[in-house]
């Protein structure tokens, strides 16, 4: 399982960075979105006993409960998703406005004066 996740994260990062290096603004934004998905999966693999064998919760007797996932990473991912949702909405709107004003999707031609 961890291997599949690792490969998936690697693919998401590779795709994200490839798209970030493109000249098109839309592809750049898609790259950022892919990257944020990759990070969420990465955080997911960091919890749940992947490294320590047990989530950081115990019952009343101090025993780690069986078959329980790590809640911390889920909270972290939820927060990260919310933030990236807001930022993506903002940057899409910004790109749309920039496209209206400059009439271009090409980052090389989108200069301040021009």
């Amino acid at each position: 399982m961890i291997l599949i996740l690792a490969i998936t994260i690697g693919c998401l990062f590779a795709g994200g960075f490839y798209l970030l290096l493109r000249r098109s603004l839309v592809k750049l934004i898609l790259g950022l979105i892919l990257l944020s998905h990759g990070v969420n999966l990465l955080i997911f693999t960091m919890g749940d006993g992947v490294r320590r064998g047990a989530p950081p919760i115990v019952d009343k007797n101090g025993v780690a409960p069986f078959n329980v996932a790590d809640p911390v990473v889920q909270a972290l991912i939820l927060t990260a998703i919310v933030i990236s949702f807001g930022l993506t909405a903002f940057i899409l709107t910004l790109a749309y406005r920039a496209n209206q004003v400059t009439g271009s999707d090409d980052l090389d031609t989108m200069q301040g004066e021009g």
Binding site: L87, I91, T102, M110, G112, E113, G114
Partner: peptide
């Protein structure tokens, strides 16, 4: 225009 293109880089 300058704000939008500068802002994009910033973002």
């Amino acid at each position: 225009r300058a704000q939008l293109t500068g802002g994009l880089k910033y973002v």
